[in-house]
Amino acid sequence: MKTKLYSKLWIYFVTLIFVSLVLLSILFGGLLVFLMRKEIIKPGPDNHLIIISIFTLFSIITGTGVAGLVGRRILAPIRELSANMNQVAKGDFSLRVNEKQPIQEVQQLFDHFNTMVVELDSMETLRNDFVASVSHEFKTPLATIQGYVQLLQTSDLTPQEIADYQRRILEGAEQLATLTNNILRLTKLESATTPLAKTRFRLDEQIREVLLFLRPQWEPKNIQWELTLPRKEFYGNEELLYQVWLNLIDNSIKYSQQDAVVAITLTSSTEYLEICFQDWGMGIPEKEQKRVFDKFYQGDTSRKSAGNGLGLSLVREIVDAHEGAVSVTSSQTAGTRFFVRLPLG
């Protein structure tokens, strides 16, 4: 691989040195003949020192010219790249360099520099969007808590109003806690450098445990569950996968109507397990389905009170960490289906 990458640059230097030596010999021979014809120097043992001095001077002049050519062709673009890298280090990601260079290796270097700057610019944009989104998501529940705390300071409140305000303050605090926990989990997953801690556990039992945990949310809606959960064991991170089912089932509950039906189906093959979560609630528009796993993305503004846009991002990160895949199909008339595929082995 090294030979392939550096061969053209090596050939360039060898050719440059060879041509320089040939040119130096020809020019020096021609100069020597010219000086002899003009009888400036004459053949003889006493003229060796003069010939050597002329050759040395001529070599210095020619070598300086060759060094200048090499500097112009190779070192000048590298100096330009160095200056641009210094600007990038200061946070300027708008720089681009001309990728059309006479030497392929230098051209590749410039091309990689442009690719790097584009990626850094994209990461900086994502970082700014993430900070803005986090700030916005924290601001909403904090404003809610602050508003109801101020209302509680009034003296003419009925017991029912006091209880209602306290309930809303608690909901705001729970929303903040959920947001904080999801951000911490996402950060931990994205920065993880060690393999997940895995154990073997009953996947079907875990999904049933999540249903029982969320019972206070789905019972008031009188949601009916169609469960196809045969006994299946899986080797993975039990705590993280619990968060996957928690977020997906919670979504199904939030967007289902009163007396709705939600189906959970677990199937398997020799290579993978697949869990499908099917609800018949409000669907996701086709143009938004590709972005439902993006951080803080909530296409339908009417749903913003139902979550903070991190649940499905967390689902994707956890499933990816298990080398699996998560996908969604949806229509506004037939509901939504989330598929989680986890490899066995």
Results as ranks from 00 to 15, higher is better:
1 M>L: 11
3 T>G: 09
4 K>Q: 13
5 L>C: 05
8 K>Q: 15
12 Y>V: 02
14 V>M: 06
18 F>C: 10
20 S>L: 08
21 L>P: 06
23 L>T: 06
23 L>F: 08
27 L>A: 10
27 L>I: 07
37 R>Y: 09
38 K>R: 14
46 D>I: 07
48 H>G: 10
49 L>E: 01
56 T>P: 00
59 S>F: 10
67 A>H: 01
69 L>T: 00
71 G>M: 04
76 A>S: 14
76 A>P: 01
77 P>W: 00
84 N>D: 10
92 D>Y: 02
93 F>H: 05
94 S>T: 15
94 S>Y: 09
102 P>A: 03
103 I>S: 07
104 Q>I: 02
107 Q>G: 12
110 F>K: 05
110 F>M: 11
113 F>D: 04
113 F>K: 04
115 T>V: 10
118 V>G: 00
120 L>F: 12
121 D>G: 12
122 S>C: 01
123 M>G: 00
126 L>K: 11
130 F>G: 01
136 H>I: 05
137 E>F: 05
137 E>S: 11
138 F>N: 10
142 L>G: 04
144 T>W: 13
148 Y>W: 08
153 Q>S: 04
154 T>N: 08
159 P>G: 01
162 I>F: 01
164 D>G: 08
165 Y>M: 08
166 Q>G: 07
170 L>Y: 09
171 E>F: 14
172 G>K: 04
178 T>Q: 15
181 N>S: 15
182 N>D: 15
184 L>Q: 15
190 E>T: 09
192 A>L: 15
193 T>W: 06
195 P>K: 06
199 T>M: 02
200 R>G: 07
203 L>R: 07
204 D>W: 00
205 E>H: 11
210 V>Y: 06
219 E>A: 14
221 K>F: 12
222 N>E: 13
224 Q>G: 05
226 E>D: 04
229 L>V: 08
233 E>Q: 15
233 E>D: 15
237 N>K: 02
240 L>F: 08
241 L>N: 10
248 L>G: 12
249 I>L: 14
257 Q>C: 04
258 Q>R: 15
263 A>M: 03
265 T>G: 03
265 T>N: 08
266 L>W: 06
273 L>H: 14
280 W>A: 01
281 G>Q: 09
285 P>C: 00
286 E>K: 13
290 K>T: 05
292 V>F: 04
297 Y>D: 13
299 G>E: 00
299 G>Q: 01
302 S>V: 01
305 S>A: 09
308 N>E: 13
309 G>P: 11
311 G>F: 06
312 L>S: 06
314 L>W: 03
317 E>M: 09
318 I>Q: 03
325 A>V: 13
340 V>M: 09
340 V>P: 12
341 R>G: 10
